[in-house]
Amino acid sequence: MTPAADVTGKRILITGGASGIGAASALLLASRGAKVVIGDLAEELGQQVAQQGQEAGHLVMFKKVDVTSGDEVRELFAFAMQALGGLDVVINNAGVDHMPAPMHELRDEDFDRNIAVNLKGVWHCMRAAITCMAPNGGGHVINVASIAGLRSAPVLSAYSASKHGVIGLTKTAAIEYAKANIRFNAVCPSFIDTPMVQNTLAKLDERGQQSIVKASPLRRLGRVEEVSSAIAWLASGESSFMNGHAFTLDGGMMA
């Protein structure tokens, strides 16, 4: 009997794979038989994740990349194509946030960085994925967005703008490339217990921390394994009729 969310033999590239959701997804997918390349700017952490997967007997490789650079993204995809022999799934997870602030107080550099990494970086990777997948029968691109891309996100205006853009790119590409058998879907988590969220919490007072933790009706942060398990399902053949969808993992915030 084929196990649920079977990804055996799938060739998968994950950006932002050195920590958080990306690292958890890489290790889970590899443990289920996928061949994985992770890309990240954090070289030491990325190498550690790859080593952890290799020590468990799985195929996990790392390459440093800055997703804001189109040239570096193309180099990453060329590396993955050569190392894996092709790409079946690309998970665009690399992202940043910014210190919560009213829109009129947000610094130019914070807005620019969020757009450069979260939106243009995803666009670079989507474009590279299409170039690799279209001549080879298709594939699946999974963009990690956020519920901040589906609703208002007070004091997170730059982050929200970038994630709304990711969902727009996802839906547009899903229609443009359906005939090429390339599917595009987005994963939209709420606050997940990742290093990025913990870094934000550390900068807030107790009231601010509690407002984030209790934003979900479940009254807690999401866990990385809850998101990586959903990504694993999307990466499997079981999601084969899903295209152009924004998949929420928010404990009920959008209900």
Rank of each mutant, 00 (worst) to 15 (best):
Q198N: 15
T170I: 07
A161Q: 02
R151Y: 10
S157N: 05
V166N: 09
D205H: 04
L201H: 04
N199Q: 13
N181L: 12
R151F: 11
R207I: 09
S190G: 04
E206D: 13
A153L: 07
K179V: 04
Y177G: 00
A173V: 04
A174P: 01
L150M: 15
K214T: 07
L156K: 09
E176Q: 14
K214E: 11
G165A: 04
E176V: 07
F184K: 00
R183K: 10
S152T: 11
Y177H: 11
A148L: 06
V166L: 12
L169Q: 06
A161H: 01
A186L: 09
T200A: 10
Y177E: 05
H164W: 15
L150G: 09
I175L: 14
Q210W: 03
L169T: 07
K163R: 06
V197W: 05
P189Q: 14
V155D: 15
V213T: 03
I167N: 03
A202H: 10
P189H: 14
C188Q: 11
K163F: 04
S190I: 03
T170F: 02
C188E: 09
L156A: 12
A180C: 09
T194R: 07
R183W: 01
D205A: 11
P195S: 07
S162M: 00
A173K: 01
M196H: 06
A202M: 12
I192G: 00
H164Q: 06
A186E: 08
A173S: 09
Y177S: 02
D193L: 10
I167Y: 03
V166P: 00
A153T: 08
K163N: 04
N199P: 03
N199V: 00
N185D: 14
F184L: 08
M196S: 11
Y177V: 08
G165M: 04
R207F: 09
N199C: 12
A178R: 12
C188H: 06
K163Y: 03
E176L: 08
S157W: 03
N181W: 01
M196E: 15
Q210T: 04
T172H: 10
I192W: 02
H164F: 13
A161D: 03
K179H: 12
T194M: 09
K171A: 07
V187A: 09
A173N: 01
P189D: 14
A180K: 13
Q209H: 09
T194K: 12
T172P: 01
S162P: 01
V155Q: 15
R207C: 11
T194I: 13
Q209S: 02
G208V: 05
L169M: 10
R207L: 15
G208R: 01
N199E: 15
S160V: 02
A148W: 01
G168I: 14
G208Y: 05
Y177P: 00
R207E: 15
T170H: 04
E206W: 01
A158Q: 02
L204Q: 02
R151I: 10
N181C: 12
V187M: 13
T194G: 11
V213N: 00
T194E: 08
